[in-house]
Amino acid sequence: MTTRTARIATALLGGAAALITLAAPAAAAPSAATAGRVDVTAQRLVLDPTDRGYVGTLTATVTNRRSTATSVSLVVTEPAGASFTSIEPGGGCFYNRLVENRLVIGCGGEQIEAGKSLTFRLGFHVWTTARSYPMVANGGRIEVVPSGAAAASDATGFTTLFRSTSGSLRKPRPYVQAVDTDLGIRGSAVTLAPQPDGTLLGRMPVTVRYGNDAPTFALNVGATLPAGVQVDHIEPQDMPSFPHGFSVPGGRFVPGEERTFDVFLRAPAGTAAGELGTGSLTVTGSYFYGADDPQDVDPSDNTTSFTVTAAAAS
């Protein structure tokens, strides 16, 4: 199995919550310029620091100026790669494409009564190290597409501010997200011991390190092993493993995080005792399905090699 076939497809998000319909105050009739439009406005997004990145919620309001109820979809360009997490209210969301390594996400369709407004809450989580100074990112964008329309009826950009660890938003510096990953993996020699069914099984602790904040949704590991030897399973395990690959457990990483887990290798019954050969594990990041895996700043530590030995029956 190749790393690509072990890719985790994370192309579907969903979110559902209570519908929030704003009670619109009395207002003058729409002008000729706005009559029949569906508009969108958004506040700035403020992200608060946590011990695992920055989190925050953006409020966006869509107003239906038409004379009939209209269903709308939102197209969201996130301010940082792999940061969009949720929408309320909202149906399923799908990753459409990349723009400057940031995802463009389509979320559909909520109905808005004629002359009414609907407020959406969009969640974001940027997996980067919290700084002692505030930061700013531009490029976030929301488009509203009425049902049956071939293009957006309206669009608005929004600014994203990262609050400093002391709570300040004054004099923010630009936030620059890494594009190339900085991954590392370490394993060690493993000995396979005879099991009651005649096969041989061995445990190898493996450590994976995530060095920066390049966007990925999963880390996949491809295994090259001596003849007859396969990956049996990993512990802990939150995704299926395969004979020649698995995904690193535990979800997203923050920069500098290391995670250790156990990889279990198995050889078939009848395997002769002695050194079986050298195996290796190679880690890569998985981001947007259909695009190439992210490049790494130093591929030399993306692979770890180790000897595999079969123990004699006692």
Rank of each mutant, 00 (worst) to 15 (best):
A6T: 07
A18I: 12
T21G: 04
A23F: 06
A28F: 06
G36T: 09
V38G: 05
V40S: 03
D48M: 12
G53D: 02
T63Q: 11
A69H: 04
T77N: 06
P79W: 09
A82M: 04
A82E: 08
G91Q: 04
G92D: 06
L98H: 02
V99Q: 14
G106I: 00
C107I: 11
G109L: 05
T119H: 01
F120A: 04
V126A: 11
W127D: 00
T128L: 02
T128E: 07
A130R: 01
G140Q: 11
G140V: 08
V144H: 08
S147V: 03
G148R: 07
A151G: 07
T156H: 00
T156E: 06
T156Q: 07
V176P: 01
G187S: 14
Q195V: 08
P196W: 13
M204A: 06
V208A: 02
D213T: 06
P215S: 07
A218R: 03
A218C: 12
N220M: 14
A223T: 06
A223N: 10
G228D: 13
Q237A: 15
D238G: 10
M239S: 09
P240E: 13
S241F: 00
P243E: 12
H244S: 15
G245T: 10
P249F: 14
V254N: 08
F261K: 06
A267N: 08
P268M: 13
T271N: 11
A272T: 13
V297F: 02
A313P: 00
S314G: 13
